[in-house]
Design a protein around this nucleic acid. Structure first.
Length: 589
RNA sequence: GGUCCGCUAGCUCAGCUGGAUAGAGCAACUGCCUUCUAAGCAGUAGGUCUUAGGUUCGAAUCCUAAGCGGAUCACCA
């Protein structure tokens, strides 16, 4: 039985035998004992006093005495105010160490649910930016976390590959592109397409400006500018299946996909399947028809279709335009349906920014109205926006932090730091380059993932991402030191007789002990940042241990071997945790 | 205006379903490389946890208001 469960049962038993009281689990609170007190686990006695009808100290004394007698692994206790601090015998930690230190599956959970996790969701009209980076890192790592915790996870992407925005890029290319291609211009595909999106905006603004000068109101001008009218015509042609438009659309989208693939590769994220909205908006429409037939939805005189969500505290929501064309949510309904047909999932997770909280609430409620069995399993993993120090990234003001640029900058910074330290002079250029990338991505990913997903975060492009302190490279550094130790010494069979563990060693074993529960907790909360914090705490404790304790020299063979095995286990847990985060470990740095 | 989210050290963030004297990193200042990688270790300084009430043995944490900031409420996606 787990330590915590053992103690709770022990306290229940104590309360029964000492005071004749039957306590539920909820009235027994356990905490980790704070550093400044002696002990490992603390029972908070205050809630128990009303059952014991004695003061907190007296109650704590009595329970402590009882537990030391009844539970083998509790070696001693002390009472501070209403806190009963229990000391766990070293033999407990050592037997745990012995049992698990060679377990390659340590921390992995039992098989549970089938989960589909959607992330990324780019528009195919411009390159990926910092917001997408947060999305991709969260999506990829959360999928790994859920998988490690025991779920059968399938990662999918959704391409928002249709709509007016794409038409803008297409139109601009047609008008101003002069037949250029990514190859001919030497640009990455998505950047090439994005260039025309910007180009459109530039010419469109000029047109609007000209119309305003002719005396039109800004509002009217924005609707009547020839470019926007043409773009809208193009959208209609697209829906009608115009061959020429479709050909152009396919060509430009494929340029985007090529560009995206490169970025996915650089970031180390992948997908089992890419859904395209263009493939499913019709299916969404048929779902709307289905809802109409069953009277879950209603049609207005102009032909638009709505759903009444007032009973759920929301308002009426449009599902289909008066002209019969689909809106954003129509497509999402179609994709949701298709995804269930594809996977029969227990849970479908959408990693999408918090600005779409309302949208996903509506989506889920609409699917519930339709009595879809999978509606209940939908979970919106909402994350906060990435802001700049002076607010939101704005493409108009050119403050968007481009994903590819940022990755390149990080690699350059990693190279600079590494060269300053001069520890890898014997590396080949290829090895060095690989290391820069590993460290750069370690720093970037750790930086993005250590913030709780829900929270919006601030990114300051003026300050480069740290490589010291609470960072990815710090964890990698500790891993590398352990690898260096292991290269110098071969391991022998564990021999624990006569090993007296000290505080530093015990802290590490306790950290390792927490790992499986940490994984389950983080997975239950969909919170990858909990794993990041755990890694930092483990690595920090290791760093302290490393500084205070000789491992290879001045030790007996058994002690050396124990410390090496302990180090190796720490390294393994760090490595598998970083694997979940999507960060590689170098062997030297 | 309705709804939702946030506010913790100069900056960036932890602080799990209430528990002991609120923690890290960066920045500042002090020590420590002839021990296994100093991208490190040890230490100093830095806080009215936005404010006001409430709940209770106990509140950064829960409740109610207020302030400030953000998001959202489109026949945009």
């Amino acid at each position: 039985m787990k330590l915590e469960a053992l103690i709770i049962a022990g306290v229940q038993e104590a309360m029964r035998n000492l005071y004749g009281q039957e306590l539920g689990l909820e009235s027994i609170a356990l905490n980790e004992t704070k550093k400044e007190f002696v002990g490992d686990i603390t029972v908070v006695v205050f809630p128990l006093t009303k059952f014991s009808r004695l003061g907190p100290e007296q109650t704590a004394e009595a329970i402590g005495t009882y537990l030391v007698k009844s539970i083998e692994y509790i070696s001693a206790f002390n009472v501070v105010k209403g806190f009963l601090n229990l000391q766990i015998a070293n033999s407990y930690w050592l037997s745990f160490f012995k049992a698990e230190h060679n377990n390659l599956e340590f921390g992995k959970g039992e098989k549970k649910r089938k989960v589909v996790l959607e992330y990324c969701g780019p528009n195919t009209n411009k390159p990926l930016h910092l917001g997408h980076i947060r999305n991709m890192l969260l999506g990829y790592s959360t999928a790994n976390l859920l998988s490690f915790a025991g779920n059968d996870v399938h990662k999918v992407n959704i391409y928002n590959d249709r709509g007016i925005a794409i038409c803008k890029s297409m139109l601009a290319w047609k008008l101003f592109g002069a037949g250029a291609t990514p190859e001919s211009s030497g640009l990455k595909g998505d950047h090439f397409v994005g260039k025309f999106y910007v180009e459109f905006d530039k010419h469109y603004k000029a047109e609007v400006q000209a119309l305003v000068e002719q005396g039109l109101s800004k509002e009217v001008a924005e609707k009547q500018a020839p470019l926007i009218v043409k773009a809208q015509e193009m959208l209609v042609q697209w829906e009608q299946g115009d061959k020429e438009v479709l050909a152009l659309w396919n060509k430009m989208n494929s340029w985007c996909y090529e560009g995206f693939e490169e970025t996915f590769k650089a970031l180390g994220v992948d997908f089992e399947k890419h859904y395209k909205e263009s493939d499913f908006y019709l299916q969404g429409k048929s779902l709307v028809d289905e809802g109409l037939k069953k009277n879950f939805f209603y049609k207005k005189e102009d032909g638009s279709v709505w759903v009444d969500l007032e009973d759920k505290g929301l308002d009426h929501k449009l599902l289909l335009r008066g002209d019969g064309t689909s809106v954003y949510i129509t497509q999402d309904m179609g994709v949701a349906e298709a995804r269930y047909q594809d996977y029969q999932f227990d849970e479908s997770i959408y990693v999408v920014a918090s600005e779409q909280d309302y949208h996903f609430k509506v989506l889920q409620l609409v699917l519930e109205k339709l009595e879809k069995p999978y509606a209940e399993g939908i979970y919106h993993l909402s994350y906060g926006l990435v802001n700049l120090p002076n607010g939101r990234m704005k493409s108009r003001e050119g403050t968007v932090v481009d994903a590819d640029d940022l990755i390149a900058e990080m690699i350059a910074t990693a190279e600079k730091h590494t060269k300053e330290l001069g520890k890898i002079d014997d590396f080949t250029p290829e090895e060095a380059q690989a290391l820069y990338k590993t460290l750069a991505m370690g720093a970037l990913k750790y930086f993005m993932l250590k913030v709780s997903p829900k929270r919006s975060m601030i990114f300051n492009p003026e300050e480069s991402i740290e490589f010291q302190g609470d960072t990815g490279p710090f964890i990698q550094f500790n891993y590398v030191r352990i690898q260096s130790l292991l290269r110098k010494q071969t391991l022998a069979q564990l021999q624990l007789d006569g090993i007296e563990i000290n505080e530093d060693e015990k802290d590490l074993i306790k950290d390792l002990y927490k790992f499986p529960a940490l994984i389950q907790g983080a997975a239950a909360n969909y919170d990858i940042s909990e794993l990041v914090s755990y890694c930092y705490s483990l690595a920090k404790n290791y760093s302290k241990f490393y500084a205070n304790n000789a491992i290879l020299v001045d030790t007996t063979e058994d002690l050396k071997n124990f410390r090496l095995l302990l180090s190796r286990w720490v390294a393994e847990v760090l490595k598998s945790s970083f694997g979940i985060l999507g960060i590689e470990m170098p062997n030297r740095m």
